[in-house]
Each structure stands twice: as structure tokens, then as C-alpha cells.
Amino acid sequence: MSVIEANNLTKRFGNLVAVDHVSFSVKEGEIFGFLGPNGAGKTTTINMLTTLLNPTEGSAKVGGFDVEKQDGKVRGIVGLVPQDITVDDDLTGMENMMLQAKLYHVPTEVARERIKEALSLVALTDAANRRVETYSGGMRKRLELAEGLIHYPKVLFLDEPTLGLDVQTRVVMWDYIRNLRDKHKITMFLTTHYMEEADVLCDRIAIIDHGKIVALDTPQNLKDSLGGDIIELEFNRKKDDQTETLKLLPQVKDVKKIGDTYRIKVSKGEKTLPSIMENLLKMNLRMNKVSLVKPTLDQVYLEYTGRSLRETQGETGEVWRRMITLRRIRG
């Protein structure tokens, strides 16, 4: 069953087409990632799916409700962990959570239990009664995440959940997010421009660029679509060119010789490597160097979005908020 369904979803701001006829569906319990450079249309998509913006064209359903016509219903079942840090500095962690509970009509008694649970999940129990002003950036992000969970949403939207966090905190956040899916079966839609994050967290990834989805598949399939892994090897005897010999081996797709190194393209490198080595040894070709290079999502991403760095354009307000967010994260 699909929890999110987007059909030709489009958003125009004047002449700029931020999201351009995007269609996809997200299954229940899935972690679905939107990967793309800044300004690709990730946040705009989230804004439409969470009813903050109305689509210019096309439609989307979340939990079976139309985001435009049944926006009230949609708001009741989604949670949003925004890119900006929106927890209130002047209130304590507990007060922030309680306010969120009130906004989602969670009865006070139930809210107390859930807040306890959510805060311990994000390891903020000890800091609950401190003012958020004193929190570090990672703590604020975690509180933000906990707030998104207070009403047990059916779908949780995470907009750049680890933007600006240090490596350790990022890994901890990933654990929390996976934990949530496994324990509460929450469907998650997240945006990121960190390849590693998409690779580690997501069941499926859509690569979005210039408002369009350019690729959509599991991380593994996306990597495979590049044509497989590369085995790099060097022979003991460097004089003879073995390119043709290698090409004749069954699993080999392509061979390139760069200097003394042969780059052999294969699929499922871990499995092919041993048999290739066996074959070569049988032919009495001894190797002094072998390595396996796995394609990364980085390569996939660059393949689809192009290599050049692009200037992104943004509204002044957005740029300002991003600046403030980063400043607040860095405390």
C-alpha cells in the first residue's frame, strides 16, 4: 500500500519551475529519500506534501488524503522535521514538547508518557528542563526530531535532518531514524544532499535535479546501473599486454589498461573476483596487486546531476534562515 502518492506534482514561482511534473509513490514503512543539489526542488516538494504550499499543477495524496482538498486531514497524520531549527530558544525542551503536543491535540496525560519516551529516544531526558538556549546544535536537531514524533505520525517528513551536524552526531541521528522506522513502523520521506546519508538510510532514492526526478530506485540498483564494479589489477610480468586475455574471461564486461594497471568492469565484484583470479592463476598469470572498487552513490549522483557546480538561487528569506540555522546549530 502506498502512503504517499504524487501525480505530476508541479510548483511554479513566477517563471521558475521549482518542481516539474514529479510522480512517485512511497510504500508504508519505507524510508524514501529525495537526493539532489541545493535548489533542486526537495523542500518545495516537502512543502506541498505537508500542505504548506499548494501545487500549481498535479496532485498528491498522503495517507489517502488529497493535500489540497483535505489539507486538514493531512496535517493530522503527518509530522515535519523542518530544515530550520524551529524549537523555541526561550522555552525548555519539555515546554517545547508540551506545546507541540497541544498543537496536535494529544491529551496532557498521554503527552507526558510520549514526551518521556520521545526524549529518551533522542537522549535528551537529562536536558528536558533546561532552556533550549543552552542546547548544542545536535541537541536542538534531536529535539526537533522528537517534536515531530509526539502525535505518532503516519508519515514523517525530514527535511535535511543532519544539515550542519558533525559526523558523530550525524551517525547518531541515523540510528534514531532507523530505530523509529523499525519500532513504530513510521513511513519516512527525507531529503538530503549527503550521498552517504541516502545510501545508509533509504530503502529507495529519487534523484531530483532542476525540479525533475532523474532516477528512482534502490541505492543498490542505482549503483548497479552505472555498470558494475571495477577490479584493478597488476601482473608480475608487465611486458606482455593481457587485455585480450582478460576480455575472453566469462564475467568480464570491459577492460581498460591505464599504465600497468588493468581496470576490469564486472558486476557483483565480490563474487566475480575469486573466479577471475582462479582463471588467471590457471593460465599461470601471477598478480602482484588486486583491488576492488565499488561504485558509490556519489558517482551515481554525479552521473545524473552533472559534474559542474551550479549557482543556486534562493529567496533572501531562505538564505537568511539557512544562515541563522547554521549559526544556531553551531551554537
Binding site: 523542518p82 530550520d84 524551529t86 528569506g317
Partner: peptide, 15 residues
């Protein structure tokens, strides 16, 4: 509230 994004949080809430 608009600048800090708090307003968005309110707008997403079913209130």
C-alpha cells in the same frame, strides 16, 4: 516566527 520557521511548524499542525 516566519523567519525562524516557527510559523511553518504552526501551519503544518492541524490547528
Amino acid at each position: 516566527d516566519r523567519r525562524f520557521g516557527f510559523l511553518n511548524k504552526l501551519l503544518v499542525a492541524p490547528i
